[in-house]
């Protein structure tokens, strides 16, 4: 079941399907899996099924929002067993450099070929605010460390790694929150640190994102890194407001909330907005795909993608 240790295809750094899709110039789809509060693998597979129909890779979140769920490495391992291609998310909040470097080797050995390096939300917003925050790495030093492990075959200590992890390296970016002017510059830093693809946070403010992308193109970053725009269906105006004030780093413009408020069926409207967002993202130069985060609405993901028509050109 597990693949033998072999060199990645020419011009690739990993065996990742996501990497192949992006490098071949096709519009990529990734989707976020809602991690179960359970030790039953069946719960993971149930959550993965509606995503696997359309996604090139499935993101396994690492205690996002500082809330405890099944670990991202556990979910990633289960997904590889069933033939899915996971994105193993690593947050710097909970583990130090010793744990993370070990986990990176472990994940790669279990067939993981995408990682996403994240700083992580502060422990204060989560369900156990008394926990000790670690933050030994930040997302950039983590990127550089895994790149060193992969390309130089070395731990950060200088010790040699016999067979290096073959991983497609990703990072996040949040274009819609301050300091707006420096966000593209920091993206450049992430590319410098080793990022090969970017998944952004939720984008509901398209003009603001377009401004960000214009600067990204000016800096030539769209040629150096694949950018997947983050989208997701809103459940209701109330949920959107709650997210805006309680989840770090989420910007929902008033116009979008108004539209949700006026809709007769908010659920349908949220889906429709998401479909429209995906279609708009596709038209923005430098955007290579979308990352769908449908929290508690995983069952809608394949429908949303089909309705958006972004996969119509793909022969499946």
């Amino acid at each position: 079941m597990s693949q033998p240790y072999s060199a990645p295809p020419e011009g690739h750094v990993s065996h990742s399907r996501l990497e192949r899709v992006l490098r071949s110039g096709r519009f990529a789809i990734t989707a976020e899996l809602n991690p179960p509060d359970s030790a039953d693998p069946a719960d993971v597979y149930e959550a993965a099924r509606p995503l696997g129909e359309v996604a090139d890779a499935i993101n396994a979140t690492d205690a996002s929002g500082a809330n405890c769920h099944m670990s991202s490495i556990g979910i990633s391992a289960l997904l590889t067993r069933a033939g899915y291609s996971p994105v193993y998310q690593i947050s710097c909040r909970d583990r130090n450099r010793i744990a993370i470097q070990g986990d990176v080797l472990g994940a790669a050995a279990m067939g993981v070929s995408n990682v996403l390096c994240l700083t992580g939300d502060g422990v204060g917003v989560g369900d156990q605010p008394g926990a000790k925050p670690v933050f030994d790495f930040d997302s950039l030093s983590l990127l550089r460390t895994i790149k060193t492990m992969r390309d130089e075959r070395k731990f950060l200590s200088g010790r040699t790694i016999k067979n290096p992890p073959q991983l497609f390296l990703g990072a996040a970016e949040n274009p819609c929150i301050p300091p707006y002017d420096w966000r593209p510059e920091r993206l450049a830093k992430k590319v410098e640190a080793g990022a090969e693809y970017i998944q952004t946070n939720y984008i509901y403010d398209v003009p603001l994102f377009e401004k960000f992308m214009a600067r990204v193109r000016d800096l030539g970053l769209d040629k150096k890194v694949y950018i997947l725009a983050g989208v997701g269906p809103l459940a209701s105006a109330r949920a959107a407001r709650w997210m805006r004030s309680n989840v770090p780093g989420i910007h929902v413009p008033d116009a979008v909330i108004d539209r949700m408020e006026k809709a007769e069926k908010p659920g349908q409207e949220g889906k429709k907005i998401c479909v429209e967002l995906i279609q708009q993202m596709r038209e923005i130069a430098g955007v290579s795909g979308v990352h769908v985060m449908a929290y508690r609405k995983e069952h809608e993901v394949s429908e949303i993608i089909r309705e958006s028509g972004v996969l119509a050109s793909r022969k499946r």
Binding site: G122, G124, V125, L140, N174, I177, P178, P179, R186
Partner: peptide, 21 residues
């Protein structure tokens, strides 16, 4: 920085440029 980032800012900055934590 409460997260002691060496390469910030993180993605949690609040409107007006205030800290997430």
């Amino acid at each position: 920085c409460p997260k002691q980032l060496r390469n910030g800012p993180c993605g949690g900055v609040r409107p007006g440029g205030f800290c997430e934590v």
